[in-house]
Every structure is written in structure tokens, then in C-alpha cells.
Design a protein around this nucleic acid. Sequence first.
DNA 1: GCAGACAATGTAAGCGCTTGCATAAAGAGT
DNA 2: ACTCTTTATGCAAGCGCTTACATTGTCTGC
Lengths: 339, 339
Amino acid sequence: MTQKSSPTIDDVARLAAVSTATVSRCLNAPQKVSQKTLERVMGAVRDLGYTPNFAARAMAANRTRTIGAVIPTMENAIFARGLQAFQEALHLRGYTLLVASSAYDPTREAEQIRTLVGRGADGLLLIGHDRPDATYAYLSDRDVPALVSWAYDADGALSSVGFDNRAAMRGLANHMLELGHRRIAVISGHIAGNDRAAERVGGIRDAMMACGLDAGGLPVEECDYDIDAGAAACGRLLDCDPPPTLLMCGNDVLAVGALREAGRRGLRVPDDLSITGFDDIELARIVVPPLTTVHVPHRQMGGLAAETLIGMIETGTRPDPVKLDSSLRLRGSVRAVRP
Amino acid sequence: MTQKSSPTIDDVARLAAVSTATVSRCLNAPQKVSQKTLERVMGAVRDLGYTPNFAARAMAANRTRTIGAVIPTMENAIFARGLQAFQEALHLRGYTLLVASSAYDPTREAEQIRTLVGRGADGLLLIGHDRPDATYAYLSDRDVPALVSWAYDADGALSSVGFDNRAAMRGLANHMLELGHRRIAVISGHIAGNDRAAERVGGIRDAMMACGLDAGGLPVEECDYDIDAGAAACGRLLDCDPPPTLLMCGNDVLAVGALREAGRRGLRVPDDLSITGFDDIELARIVVPPLTTVHVPHRQMGGLAAETLIGMIETGTRPDPVKLDSSLRLRGSVRAVRP
DNA sequence: GCAGACAATGTAAGCGCTTGCATAAAGAGT
DNA sequence: ACTCTTTATGCAAGCGCTTACATTGTCTGC
């Protein structure tokens, strides 16, 4: 049914009156071929509308110039944006991106990794460090270069190009403590299997402890990373007595949910309740009031991750981990506590 | 460097003491193999951690159970959502999705189509009908099943599973005319090469003409599909004298941009200016005021497109086009004109 | 004019899988 | 007991490309 009549390299070779080897060289290493032959062959390629068969190429060359990425979800714009930058950088170097998502499930992640490797990915980009040993064993068995992003851990099984989630959230929490907030509650994504979520909550605790506060009593609601779940979690936290003056959320999506729930209850943000996010997606600037959040350097991270991973693939070396800087974005969703 | 030691079908065959043909059958047609052999082979597969090599498989079988989709952009959540549904439906049938984006550029779209076909896509999903004849010629040359979504045209070169953009926007425009709006302006995405954009503007003109209004004088600003461009276009239209009482936008993203610009200028929406969108993405319900818009049945469309395309691939028939219904979502961003 | 070096091209062996066909084994029917 | 099915398995030919190696042609420099 499919590709009834796609021209093959043999057709091109015949039409240009050369061997298939020469056609292959014209496509992959033109400098090895005489000008005259090159033109003739490229003419034949054009006339036939020839496109090399990817599978055959992958099989013969044992590389695909394809890189796989397994991200937790496409739903959150922050990953979409980061991948966009990653993809653009790959494209400049002649690589193609294959994306799969794991829905924050380690089992699915392992499956997706296998699929991508089976599809011939020359290297992999993964998010965060927290995954089963078996997955790491698989990667090292197969000798597949892999890089972690979105997190930074100098001692991880894989090298990383990311930022320090803990320090970033600590910075934000410090700022909030300076504004006088003491009744703090947290809405976090599920922490199991998600080091970014764990580190962010950890950063808040760090800041509280440095202030001499009891971080053990910090109310933390874990939920899925979507607006409705964020709203529900916000509701549960607001029902506490006394209610918090500040809600720190694991990402902007949860914060938007919290904002909505606060509005539904007639609370004014930031006068009655301050809310913070994390990621700095476009949404953070569009909601009313705009969200105070942590800006994640997604473009820089994507670009650098691409360069680094390509380096690993082409030179076979393990790179030094890179820690990028995040920064605070102070906007209207927070204010100081009334004295 | 890559896949130093991935086990092959030969390794499995040796370990299970059968031929490679039997291993292949265990994986692809288990009912053709005796229970005993099946178990032995599957055990070997598990022990070795064997994953079939995709490229080899594609080459030998000349099909990949992969479907390609070329969408205008990943940035707009409406495509992301629609693809999500498409992908889920494909997955149920054992197919995998490969996505590429064209940035609304017909040349890039043609490239991406070639790439996907070169990668062995068994079929393609494309958005809209407006593309060069050469692209259609390529597809029919190669006998690649392809389906159009997001638009409906009974006479298109390809069959479609979509909705009537013109009728949908006409419905919204009718409603706005009933509310008394007469000074209407439009913010549209670029119309060249984009039948959806063209049809939506056409739908507004239809409604106006049916009301006896001069559709020729309708101010239309074309711009890129992003928030900033929408805001800028909104600014240009508001500078007209007299300014419009209603801004109809080609999609929700543009409408959010318009909303922002109106706010920046101190105009109250909907009291001073009504604004409408199109698509009904999540954002439409989150902005203040929430957007009146047209709900696109993206989930239904994605699911049905998947079924239809798989049908085309597996039976080789050309299906009847399907027209789905869109519906209005009336929210706070519009109000009747003061008498 | 000729050895030596280099550039351009061809030859052919796979890469890891699927599948048509041949073969072998096991029942079924008479 | 013997043939005829039916079922399970093996054999081996590709699928369309890349690339190591062999071959041929073209200059250099002496």
C-alpha cells in the first residue's frame, strides 16, 4: 500500500550513470566527489524527487542523527518551550528531535527510553535525576549517551545541564520571609520520582529553618500538575485554621489554579492571600494579578543541552555538569504582611 | 559509539534454540507459534532485554505503524490538545505518532512531509487544505495515505475530518450582530496559505452581508498568531476613528493579546469594547474577563481522524469526509451595545 | 618517461529484520 | 497402514543504504 514507487538510490545511480556508492557520497560527503559528478547526481536526485530512506540509512550507518527526549508532559508550556529551544539548537547541527512523554511515571519513562533507543536515537535527553537504577543500567549497557536537564546534581549517574531547584525556591522563600510571611503553605506536584518537586519543597524548608522557623510543620499538599488539582489543593489549605497568608506553589500551573480558587472564595490576591509560582511561563504574566515566580532559563538550558549532548555523541566523552542561574520575577501576586 | 552491544534477533534465537523466523513470529504473530516455543522465546527476550531494531523492522516489513502529522505550530495549545487526542487514539491501535511543525510556511510543510515519508510514515495528518499542488502530487505519487483535519471541504484533494470554520465564525458573528454591534473590526492570522484563517474572516463577512451591512469595508488586521502581535494589531484598530465596539479575533491567542492591549489603554472589556476569540483553549477561561469564543471539538476530531487514517492505511480506501460541529461559548468578554 | 602519490570511482559485504516457500511433525480419516 | 491435512518450524532472499577496500586514472617531480 505504502510508497508504491519511491525512487531508491539505485534509480538515482542508474540515471546519473554512476555507482550507488558515488550517489551515497554525493549526499553524505560531497567533497569526496568531483564537481562534475556531483552536479549530475544532484540533478538526478532532483529529477526523481529522491529522498533517502531513513530506515535503510540508519541501519547501514548505525546512526540516525536523531536525539530522543523523554519529558514528563507536553501539557505544561515550560517543557514545550524548553524543547523548542533544544530542537532549534539540534536542527542547527543537523540533528532531529524525537519526543516522548512519560506522564511523570517512571515505568512509562523506562518504556519510552527503550522505544527511543530502538528507534535509533543517538542520544537521549531526560528530565531530572530520580529514576530506577534499572533505567541507568539499561543506558550504560547500551552505551547510549544521555544527559539530564531541568535539574542539577554534580554527583548524578548522568551529567546534567540544569539549574538548582532547591536554591531557586529557597531564594524565593527568603524573599517571602522578608516580607513578613510566617503562615506559609505549599502546593506541590507529587514528590515520588520527581526530584525537582522534592527539591523545591526542600528549598522552602531550608529558608524557614535558616529563619529559625519550624519547617517540620509546613503544610504541603501534593497533587497532579494541573489547574483543577491546584485549585482543589488550594481549597484544602485555605480550610485550615488559621489559614495561610502565603501559598507557595510548585509551578505556575498550580499557582493559577490556586489563584482561581482564591478568587472563587472571594479572597483578594495579594491583599488577603499571597501566591507564588515557579517556571515563569507566559500564563504567569497574563493572569490577574500577574504571578510572582522563579524564571527558569529554559531557552539557555535547551540550547546548551543540545550542544552538550551532541558533544557527548560525537566525541564519546562525559561532559562536566553545568549549573545555570534562575532568577526571581516579582509581580503583583504577593505583598508584605500587614504589621 | 552507540548501541555497543544491543542484543539482536540472532542472540534471542540462539538462546531460545530456534530460528530467527520463529522469534520474529513470536513477536509479530504469536498465534502462529506453539505455546511452548512462545514461552521459551519470550523468556529469552526478557533475559536479554531485547528490543527489536526499529529501522531493520521498517525496512524488512515496509511499514512502521507510524503516522506523521504536520501541524502549523506547537505553541498554540489547541493543536497540542488535538494532537494529544489523536495520539491517544493511535496508541490504542498500536500506532505511533511523529510530529513536525511547519510554522505556517508551505515550503517548510512540504519539507516536513518529505522527511516524515522518508522516515517511513504509513500515513499523514495535515492541517487545512491550502497547499501547493506539488505537495499533493508528491503524496499521490508515493501513494501515501493522507487526511486533512481542522477544516472541512467536501471537494478537497484529500479527504477531511474537521469542522466548517466559515459557518462557525458566521454563527458567532450573527450572535454579535444581534447584540447590536455594527462597528466591527477583525484581527486575523495571515490568510495566505491558511484556509482556516480565510474562512473565518469569510464567515464574518457572510454574516454582515446577510444583515445588509457593507462587508467590504470591514477592517481586518493580519498578523502572526501570538499574543504580542495580537496586542499590536488591537492597538492599530483602536486608533481608527471611530473605534470599533467589537473586535473579533481569529483565535484565542490573538484575543488574549487584544484583551491585554485594551487593558493597557484603560478600556474596560466588555463595557467599552467587546472581544471574541476562536478555539476555546484553556486560556480563554482563565483570562479576565473570560473570552466568548467558538469551541472546537478537538478531542473528537483527533480521535476520529486517527480511526479514519488507520482505516485508509489498512484498507487502502478513501473515506467520506466528516464534518463535526463546533459550538459557541458565550462568556464575559462581550456585551450588547448600549442603545 | 616512469615511480609514487593522490583523487575519483566502483565492488560488494553487510546492517537486523520479515516473510514466501519448503520441510518436518503430528493428527485425521478411511 | 497409508494418504491427506493441518500446524510448527526452518531456510534464505531480500529491504535500501553505507563504507572498507580495490581499482583505475591523473598528476608530480626527477
